[in-house]
Amino acid sequence: MKIAVMGAGAVGCYYGGMLARAGHEVMLIARPAHVAAIERDGLRLEAQGFDEHIRLSASSDPAAVAGAELVLFCVKSPDTESAGDLLRPHLAPGALLLTLQNGVDNAERLRKRLPQAVAAAVVYVATEMAGPGHVKHHGRGELVIEPSNTAAVSSEAVAQMLIAAGVPTEVSPDVVGALWAKLILNCAYNALSAISRQPYGVLAQAAGVADVMGDVVAECLAVAEAEGVRVPGDVPAAVRRIAETMPNQFSSTAQDLMRGKPSEIDHLNGLVVRRGAARGVPTPVNRVLHTLVKLLEAKAG
């Protein structure tokens, strides 16, 4: 299959690399420094079970998406609309766009910009860009995909392709609930990891952190209930399990702040605060965490 990855950072490079390793034709649309390194040496994918240089295509021009049957849409949540606008003139009419992003509303926002089929995906992976053209995989990697049968390729076909490439994938009709479950995990960990500059395993052992995370989770679940969303599974247990399965991972928010980049906090704890205010649900702990990260962003310039 011909696949493009829009916003090939750590997440996009990992999944694009896995698909290219399985023999698919992959185009990464990334920043120029990554493109130059990939064109010279291939994409270095340092996974838990292998460390390989994978040959694939890369470009910094959104027009390189042309002809792709599947587009993995991996930009930061604040860039969803602008990236969609850049892609619109170049997308194949039957393309399927799969949003591999943090937050709960990216697919909905992208559908307002594009006529192509858009399906949301929930991403559970620990990755980082260790250097230009070098993605490091710290753990997990499974995907939950929203059903879609209106594009040239279906969600089921994409799931089977990903599974064959070594990516555990399921198609679920309850992606909204799964997106909220992932949002709650991000709200529990991302800001605290960013503020403390600690990986999950160290962070979770610090005094008082478990209680703060418990308060965050309780607020998020209350907002989800007010929104009419059923969050599946044992969320507190899932929060505890993150530190066990990704002990060395810094949150994406922490990685952004350490690089002096804007974070997605407005679409994580900030979204919970906004939705809570609209529904009359108090969210004081999420508000404090959101505010502290915004202060750190401002300090970084």
Rank of each mutant, 00 (worst) to 15 (best):
M1F: 12
V5W: 07
M6K: 00
M6S: 05
M6I: 01
G7Q: 00
A10F: 01
C13I: 03
Y14I: 01
L19S: 04
L19W: 02
G23A: 04
G23E: 05
L28S: 10
L28A: 06
P32I: 06
V35K: 14
A36V: 15
E39Q: 14
L43G: 02
R44V: 02
A47R: 03
G49D: 00
F50W: 05
H53N: 05
R55W: 02
L56M: 10
S59C: 00
D61I: 11
A63Y: 00
A64P: 07
A66I: 00
G67I: 00
K76E: 01
D79I: 01
T80H: 12
A83G: 08
G84M: 06
G84V: 07
L86G: 00
R88L: 09
R88F: 02
L96P: 11
L98F: 04
G103F: 06
G103K: 00
V104I: 13
D105M: 02
E108R: 02
R109S: 14
R113T: 06
Q116Y: 07
A117C: 04
A120P: 10
V123H: 07
M129Y: 03
M129T: 14
A130G: 14
H138M: 03
H138P: 02
R140D: 15
V144H: 13
V144N: 04
I145D: 01
S148M: 11
A151E: 06
S154A: 02
A157W: 06
A159G: 04
Q160H: 12
M161G: 08
L162D: 09
I163F: 03
I163R: 14
A164H: 08
P168N: 04
T169E: 03
E170L: 01
E170I: 10
V171C: 01
S172T: 09
V175Y: 05
V176R: 15
A178Q: 14
K182N: 07
L183S: 09
I184E: 03
C187S: 12
Y189E: 08
N190R: 12
A191H: 14
S193G: 13
S193Q: 13
I195A: 09
I195V: 14
S196R: 15
S196Q: 15
R197G: 00
Q198I: 00
G201E: 09
G201D: 06
A204D: 12
A204K: 15
G208A: 07
G208T: 11
V209F: 10
D211Y: 04
D211L: 12
V212D: 04
M213W: 05
V216Y: 09
V216R: 11
E219I: 03
A222W: 14
A222Q: 12
A224T: 06
A226F: 09
G228W: 15
G233D: 05
G233C: 09
V235S: 02
V235H: 01
A237C: 08
V239G: 07
R241K: 15
R241G: 08
A243F: 07
T245I: 15
T245G: 03
N248P: 01
F250T: 11
F250P: 01
F250I: 11
S252P: 14
S252Y: 11
R259A: 15
S263Y: 10
S263C: 10
S263E: 06
I265Y: 14
L268R: 13
N269W: 11
V273N: 11
V273Y: 13
R274F: 02
R274N: 00
R275Y: 02
G280S: 04
P282S: 12
P284A: 06
V288D: 03
H290L: 15
K294A: 03
A298Q: 13
K299S: 13
